[in-house]
Write a protein that binds this DNA or RNA. Structure first.
Length: 399
DNA sequence: ATTCCACAGGAAACAGTGGTCC
DNA sequence: GGACCACTGTTTCCTGTGGAAT
């Protein structure tokens, strides 16, 4: 029998522990968002003026990852939209994420597209950023739209903005002064409480008119959140209490991250299904934890371009060595596979970038007369690096 | 106290790509 | 068709670092 058919048959006839997969996604918005009553109230209050057809203040939302910031903001806005649906007062929610849109231009383009602007009105390159923004404002003005622009991970946008175009955030926050009809309200969401330090004081004064801080979940709160998701997703008594407790404990250790907790129980459930187990047990959580880590590592490794991969190999070969010796090994590998080597400066920059992803770690070492250097170490297992990079044809002969 | 090493990392400039606008 | 624009990836240039050696 065809192995694919066999797997499909098994999946069809086999035990299906998870009855509702959607409930095991963090982005699934439940009817009631648990333990966020305070934050829901505060966000609603700051957006309330829009119901009275006046412009609300710009809003900043802070909180660690997995504290439900985006869920709460989206929930409140969708409720407001529901309320005004019957009136002749269109509210448009535009959601963008600065981590996904890696350039300012891309972010504005995404904004425009969500306002139904065509490629003709907003080409994907060729016009200046201020022109793009002017065209967007024109649309808001002409259609008399009340736009709530949600920028998730706004700290990344601030980084983009500080590179050049310093004024664009200022223009966004002051857009209403240029609008005769409609309005533009900015809701910024950030994981980083200190990002405002890098902003122009004029921007801070308008952007931070209202602020809501999301506290991290306690282990007890995480436990009840997971419990509710389990109730929605599984049959009764399928998930052990001890499994639930372990899951909450692991996620609590990661600064109260509910996203991680829900991921963990989902993957554990999938592993249990594959094992043909009739219940989800603590062992499955342990296994899920390992699998999530490994998946993250191989995905990161695969996503790197050639020279980054070469550097990771270099770090692996010279484990615990300095930038200088990693560069030498890297150059040698470039020669072997007939690639042009990059400059030393670029390599130090790349090593720092890779370090940010957590695949390697470094330590600054002061060696006196032998100067200062960084020593790099691989933080993941060598076998994962070898197995993953072996899939890359260009690198195979180096492994 | 001063010098020196071997880098780290910021700033600016440049090359190249792929586009618009007039 | 040429001026202009955004963006990425890179190079070049430069200043800063901190403990050992002198």
């Amino acid at each position: 029998m065809d192995p694919i058919d066999r797997l499909l048959d098994e999946a069809e006839s086999g035990l299906s522990l998870i009855k509702n997969r959607d409930a095991l996604r963090f982005t699934f918005i439940p009817d009631r968002i648990q333990h966020r009553d305070n934050e829901l109230t505060q966000v609603t209050q700051s957006l309330l003026p829009i119901l009275k057809q006046s412009r609300p203040s710009n809003l900043l939302v802070y909180g660690k990852p997995g504290t439900g910031k985006t869920l709460v903001v989206k929930k409140v806005i969708s409720k407001i939209q529901e309320r005004v649906k019957s009136t002749n007062f269109p509210i448009k929610l535009v959601y963008t994420n600065s981590k996904v849109e890696t350039t300012l231009y891309g972010l504005l383009l995404n904004f425009g597209r969500q306002l139904d602007m065509s490629e003709k009105e907003l080409p994907w390159t060729g016009i200046s950023i201020s022109e793009v923004f002017r065209r967007i404002l024109d649309v808001i003005n002409n259609k008399k739209l009340n736009v709530i622009l949600v920028i998730d991970e706004i700290d990344f946008l601030v980084k983009l903005v500080t590179k050049g175009n310093k004024d664009i955030l200022y223009h966004i926050t002051r857009a209403n002064e240029r609008l005769n009809n409609g309005s533009l309200t900015l809701v910024g969401i950030s994981n980083n409480l200190t990002f405002k330090d890098h902003l122009d004081p004029r921007v801070i004064s308008t952007l931070g008119e209202e602020e809501v801080v999301f506290t991290s979940y306690t282990i007890e709160q995480l436990r009840s959140i997971i419990q509710e998701r389990i109730r929605m997703a599984f049959d009764r008594d399928v998930v052990y209490d001890s499994t639930l407790n372990l899951c909450a404990a692991y996620a609590g250790r990661e600064h109260g991250d509910a996203r991680r907790a829900i991921d963990l129980i989902r993957v554990a459930g999938e592993i249990a299904e594959r094992d043909q187990s009739t219940s989800v047990q603590p062992d499955h959580i342990e296994e899920a934890l390992k699998k999530i880590e490994e998946d993250k590592e191989t995905a990161a490794l695969k996503s790197y371009p050639l020279h980054e991969k070469l550097l990771i190999l270099g770090v692996m070969r010279t484990d615990g060595s300095t930038t200088g010796s990693i560069y030498n090994v890297y150059k040698e590998m470039c020669r072997k596979i007939q690639q042009k080597e990059l400059s030393y400066r670029r390599i130090t920059q790349m090593l720092s970038e890779i370090e940010m992803s957590g695949l390697i770690s470094s330590r600054l070492v002061h060696q006196g007369v032998h100067g200062n250097t960084k020593k790099f170490k691989l933080t993941i297992s060598q076998s994962i690096v070898k197995e993953t990079l072996y899939l890359d044809d260009t690198l195979r002969e180096l492994i």
